[in-house]
Amino acid sequence: MKICVDLEKCQSHGQCAIAAPELFSFDAEGKLRWVKEPPVEQQATAEAAADACPEQAITIGT
C-alpha cells in the first residue's frame, strides 16, 4: 500500500496526524512527514486519515 500526500493541497490541518499518529506527524520545522509505504494491516488507519483530511490531500494507492 502507498500513501500519497498532495503537498500543493495540504494546508497543515494536522487531522491526519490525529487520526493516524503512527503514519503521519510533523517534524521540528512543522513539515508533514508520513510513512510512504506502510504494511497493508494499516490500510484502515490510512483510509481514516485520508477521510479526515479537510483538503482531501491524501490518496491511498496500491
Binding site: S12, H13, G14, A17, I18, S25, F26, G30
Partner: peptide, 10 residues
C-alpha cells in the same frame, strides 16, 4: 499556531 502545537493542546 503550528499544527503540532495544536495537536498537543487537543
Amino acid at each position: 499556531v503550528a499544527p503540532q502545537r495544536f495537536i498537543n493542546f487537543q
